[in-house]
């Protein structure tokens, strides 16, 4: 079967309409989980079926798509989703954050500030932030409806009592526009501040769980905390070994079997752009030389 045999962006138009309706509702009620009829996609659950459906419903032929996984454009998940839309939608793809109009992401928000012309689509494994302590779906929905969120702080309390500080480092719960508590998908808490007041539209798709939710542009998003244990996005003692950045989210890379390691930007596009601009980290070579 050829790529032309598929409808634009794989999904049929009725499915895309259904998803867009859910998206509109999600945008209208920031942070609220809207159920939708998730389709079987040609990839396993956990590989971003929710994000892919949201992206498919948002794409137009003029869009430029960027796909990242853990900040990188070149990991398996990112590469296959990018290829999927190249074949089924024929849209332009890019690795440059500023060139993209739609960015599908797993576990990161790009370092470069987003704009009003961009849509960020998150892949979400577990959309329900309350599930950790309340497994009954009927009960969690009621808790959302009544804004009974004491339980969320029970989780943070447990962190502090066990570790002396809030040890939740990813999927750190947030309160959206003073109303709904939301799981921001497994992004590092480092990225939480970028959720708030972003010019870009942020959409969240959970395929297996059949939920869509959204943060419209310029929405207030607050990370939950205690008065005496305020939210801390965390930081590194190191700078990026390649580009020298001191304000980015770093991945630890093991370099040998004798304890050698380096810390590098998780956002590969951002790191490359910095090196191209002449920034050099402690273990990095000048950019031209590296490319040569």
């Amino acid at each position: 079967m050829t790529a032309e045999a598929y409808n634009f962006a794989y999904l049929d138009e009725q499915t895309k309409r259904m998803i867009r309706r859910a998206l509109l509702k999600a945008v209208a009620i920031p942070g609220y989980q809207v159920p939708f009829a998730s389709r079987e996609m040609p990839m396993p659950y956990g590989w971003g079926t929710g994000g892919v459906q949201v992206t498919a419903a948002c794409l137009t032929p003029d869009d430029t798509l960027k796909v990242i996984d853990q900040g990188a454009d070149d990991t398996t998940n990112a590469v296959s989703i990018r290829k999927f839309f190249e074949r089924t939608a024929g849209v332009e793809t890019t690795e440059e954050t500023e060139e993209a109009t739609v960015i599908q992401t797993r576990h990161r928000i790009p370092e470069k500030p987003l704009t009003e012309d961009q849509i960020l689509v998150y892949q979400v494994p577990i959309p329900e932030p309350l599930r950790f302590l309340e497994p009954r779906e009927v009960e969690t929905r009621r808790m959302h409806a009544l804004a009974e969120y004491g339980l969320m702080h029970v989780k943070l309390y447990e962190d502090i009592s066990q570790h002396g500080h809030i040890a939740t480092t990813y999927a750190y719960p947030v309160l959206v526009e003073d109303r709904y508590v939301m799981d921001p998908s497994p992004i590092p808490k480092f990225d939480n501040p970028k959720l708030s007041n972003s010019p870009a539209l942020q959409l969240f798709g959970a395929g297996r769980e059949q939920r869509i939710y959204a943060i419209p542009p310029y929405t207030q998003v607050v990370s939950l905390d205690f008065e005496d244990h305020p939210f801390d996005p965390g930081q590194w003692d190191e700078d990026c070994a390649l580009c020298g950045a001191s304000d980015t989210y770093l991945d630890e890379v093991i370099t040998d079997d004798r304890g050698g390691r380096m810390f590098v930007c998780s956002d590969t596009a951002h790191c490359r752009a910095r090196r191209a601009a002449g920034h050099v980290g402690a273990m990095g070579a000048p950019y031209e030389e590296a490319e040569a």
């Binding site: 004491g150 339980l151 702080h153 309390y157 447990e158 905390d225 205690f226 008065e227 005496d228 244990h229």
Partner: peptide, 15 residues
């Protein structure tokens, strides 16, 4: 946390 839950449920936010 079991004892604290009801307090947090009515808005206590000081660990």
């Amino acid at each position: 946390a079991n004892v604290g839950e009801r307090l947090m449920g009515v808005g206590a936010r000081h660990y």
